[in-house]
Amino acid sequence: MNTSLRRPLTVIGAPVAALAVWALAVPVAGTVLTVRTGGGTQQVGPVSVVVASLLAGLAGWALLAVLERFASRPGRIWTITALAVLALSLFGPLGGAVGTAATLVLVLLHLLVGAVLVLGLARR
Rank of each mutant, 00 (worst) to 15 (best):
V49F: 09
P27L: 02
L104F: 12
A20G: 10
T10I: 10
L106S: 07
W22I: 03
A14W: 05
L94P: 01
T3Y: 13
A17H: 12
G60W: 00
P93H: 00
A87Q: 06
L109Y: 02
T3L: 15
Q42E: 14
L19F: 03
L58N: 02
P93G: 00
W22N: 00
V44W: 08
L88Q: 04
L63H: 05
F91S: 14
G45I: 08
E68C: 09
A29S: 09
G39N: 10
A25C: 06
A17G: 10
A25P: 03
L121Y: 03
A17P: 12
A17N: 11
R69A: 09
F91G: 10
A115R: 03
T31V: 15
R73K: 14
T37S: 14
V35K: 05
L24S: 09
V28C: 05
L109I: 05
R124D: 15
T100W: 13
R73C: 09
R124Q: 15
L88G: 02
R69G: 07
I12K: 12
P93I: 00
V21I: 12
T41A: 09
A18I: 01
L88F: 08
L5G: 03
F91P: 05
V66L: 09
Q43C: 05
I80E: 14
A62M: 07
F91L: 15
I77T: 14
L104I: 13
T100K: 08
G95F: 11
V51Q: 08
L83W: 14
L63A: 13
L112D: 02
F91C: 09
A20S: 09
A87F: 10
G95D: 12
P15W: 00
I80W: 15
L58F: 02
I80L: 15
P46N: 06
L55F: 05
A87H: 07
V85S: 08
T41V: 10
R6G: 01
Q43F: 14
L112I: 06
I12R: 12
V21S: 02
V28I: 11
G75H: 12
A115Y: 05
P27G: 01
R6I: 01
P46A: 12
A18Y: 01
V47G: 06
V98Y: 02
L67R: 06
G99C: 05
V118Q: 04
